[in-house]
Design a protein around this nucleic acid. Structure first.
Length: 570
RNA sequence: GGCGCGGUAGCUCAGUUGGUUAGAGCGAUCGACUCAUAAUCGAUAGGUCGGGAGUUCAAGUCUCCCCCACGCCA
């Protein structure tokens, strides 16, 4: 038995995520966690909401709520949706937790002790009406170059000229519209990532088994231009982890908070502490400290490609810089983007399907299956309603659902709702066992390598083997002349349903649970030995005929949904 | 403009270190079966592997140039 620490990129608190976000991190992470648990490994699967930063403050202001209340509510909303998609987090934490505050401050203090933090004095625009410093993108005005009236503080979107906020004519805050702005000096802390560049490069180079997508992005950031740049890790905001040096005040940093990208990945660690504090487990350091039992842990992270630089460089720099025995990631699985019907998903334009809407249309298994079997692993992938309809109807309803239906109903009508007795294996059964064994071993290999699409294809092929067997051996014909052999064939097929449930559970947990319940068993053991697994349900064992596992998506539904989620045009 | 990931059957994608007639699923056509959600199973058709040049006994696979799509950056 091995130990697997698994984390999904933590979704930002602001708003509900779309299907592309889901398939890029949480869903494949859940697949992997469920598989590893099914194989008997010890798993700690963590995720959380990323709650700090300006967007959360603004969203709260728009909702007319204190930011802490807003985040608490949105955390509950996201937690409920995650439950709806059957994401099996051992804990769904919050980056605003007291545990993360303390740990983030401890990391910063330690990095300062190691000489890896320096102070930088900068000039920044302060809005008197808003009572705060403004990030460049929250300042707008008229471009001095082209006269465009909605140029941003960092760049004019019309003529693409690089700007300083002070260049803008009639500069104003996009928060309050106030033009009462002034430039003030402010001090910030920088993490000296550049000093860790060689260590990071050596570490990345040692990861020869990582996906090309992951290492190519990391190396680009490491080597492009002047190489890895030091990074500001503080901001002049109210909402965030107060800047402290461990437990002590940090002179000159009063009223400042850590930048969201500094504290967010530390939440991966703090989340384990939250998990223990919530009474869900014990000894969290056993997962995170190699001096306290985590040396045998395999740590796998899942994320979209936009998160790769932070997970391959910034966060490892934070950990390495402490020279403390924190667990570093062993494998980073990154994903490309899922597009929606020829374009991008867009929150602002209401384009594409969002997680809450998806669950209103269909149960989570439909989405899990389609998204995982089309996961954007090698390149961007595309969601279309046509493929969603044909693929889920074919794979789930026709191939798997109908298999369960035809086997259980045939048995009920010709024998009874007990597993029938009699008959002996022949050549066909020996061959089936051999074929199943080959395919199940291939499935395991793909799952362990987090080759999501290949695993899905293999699972589907395993389902097809059942239909092939029935078609070739036709128990409905056999039954007319040789009831005993027909009984053996259908006993095998009933056992196949249990095996399919166990194998399929990581992809479609609800349908798998229905299948297990229908077979009236509690035995969810993995079919390591296929021949033995086919005798789990003995003759005389009672079962029930379940409702159809999956219904089909109609053409009318497809058309209606395609129209409903097309979004507004520019 | 620079960089990155791609461009393989109508569609979605596999193709390891270059090596026999380029694969799978869907869709299409034909056939078989009738237990089952008008489900299933089999067979067939369909590709100058983006274009060009080169290296090699041999290139989808390596090198160079170009074209296209997407993304990131400036």
């Amino acid at each position: 038995m091995a130990r697997h620490l698994i984390t999904s990129a933590i979704p930002y608190i602001n708003g509900i995520k779309h299907l592309g976000n889901l398939v890029g991190s949480q869903l494949p992470a859940d697949l992997f966690a469920r598989y590893m648990r099914a194989r008997g490994h010890e798993v700690l699967f963590l995720c959380a909401t990323d709650e700090h930063g300006t967007p959360a403050e603004l969203a709260a202001a728009k909702a007319d709520k204190p930011v802490a209340d807003y985040c608490a509510e949105m955390h509950d909303v996201q937690a409920k949706i995650a439950e709806g998609f059957r994401l099996s987090f051992d804990h769904f934490g919050r980056s605003s937790s007291p545990q993360n505050k303390k740990l983030t401050q401890a990391f910063a203090g330690r990095l300062a002790d190691m000489g890896l933090i320096r102070e930088v004095t900068e000039e920044q625009v302060y809005s008197i009406a808003d009572g705060r410093f403004l990030p460049d993108r929250y300042i707008e005005g008229t471009c001095p170059n082209c006269g465009f009236t909605s140029a941003r503080g960092d760049q004019c979107d019309n003529c693409t000229k690089q700007l300083d906020p002070t260049d803008l004519i009639d500069a104003h805050s996009t928060i309050s519209e106030s033009t009462d702005l002034e430039v003030r000096e402010t001090k910030h802390l920088y993490l000296c990532q550049s000093e860790l560049k060689d260590d990071l490069a050596a570490w990345i180079d040692s990861k020869t088994d990582w996906p090309i997508l992951t290492t190519s992005i990391a190396k680009k950031w490491l080597n492009d231009g002047d190489g890895l740049q030091d990074r500001g890790i503080t901001r002049d905001l109210d909402w965030g982890v107060p800047v402290k040096r461990g437990d002590a005040e940090w002179p000159g940093m009063e009223g400042k908070v850590f930048y969201v990208w500094f504290d967010a990945p530390i939440e991966y660690i703090a989340c384990a502490q939250e998990w223990e504090d919530a009474g869900k487990g014990t000894d969290w350091e056993r997962w995170w400290r190699t001096d306290k039992g985590a040396d045998d842990v395999t740590y796998t992270q899942f994320m979209g490609k936009d998160n790769v630089p932070f997970h391959t460089l910034s966060f490892p720099a934070t950990i390495m810089g402490t020279q403390e025995p924190w667990k570093l990631v062993d494998y980073i699985k990154s994903f490309n983007y899922l597009n929606y019907d020829g374009g991008q998903f867009s929150t602002s334009r209401g384009r594409g399907v969002f997680m809450d809407q998806a669950l209103e249309l269909l149960p989570s298994d439909y989405w899990r299956w389609w998204l995982l079997s089309h996961a954007p692993e090698s390149s961007d992938a595309e969601f279309t309603w046509e493929t969603f309809q044909t693929d889920t109807n074919k794979d789930l309803a026709d191939v798997l659902g109908n298999f369960v239906s035809r086997v259980t109903k045939f048995c009920r009508s010709k024998f009874s709702e007990d597993v029938p007795a009699g008959g002996a294996y022949g050549e066909a059964e020996t061959q089936l066992i051999a074929d199943l064994t080959t395919r199940i071993r291939a499935y395991e290999t793909h799952m362990e390598a987090t080759e999501v699409r290949k695993a899905a294809a293999e699972l589907r092929a395993i389902w097809v083997l059942g239909n092939e067997y029935l078609q070739a051996n036709a128990p409905w014909t056999t039954f007319k002349t040789d009831e005993e052999t027909a009984a053996m064939q259908i006993r095998l097929a009933l056992n196949l349903i249990r095996i399919y449930a166990v194998l399929s559970a990581p992809f479609i947990p609800d349908a798998a649970a229905t299948m297990i319940a229908a077979m009236q068993t509690t035995d969810e053991s993995w079919p390591t030995d296929v021949a033995a697994a086919l005798e789990t349900l003995p003759a005389g064992h009672a079962f029930t005929v379940p409702e159809n596992l999956f219904r089909k998506i109609t053409d009318d539904e497809r058309e209606e949904w395609a129209a409903r989620f097309a979004g507004t045009r520019d």
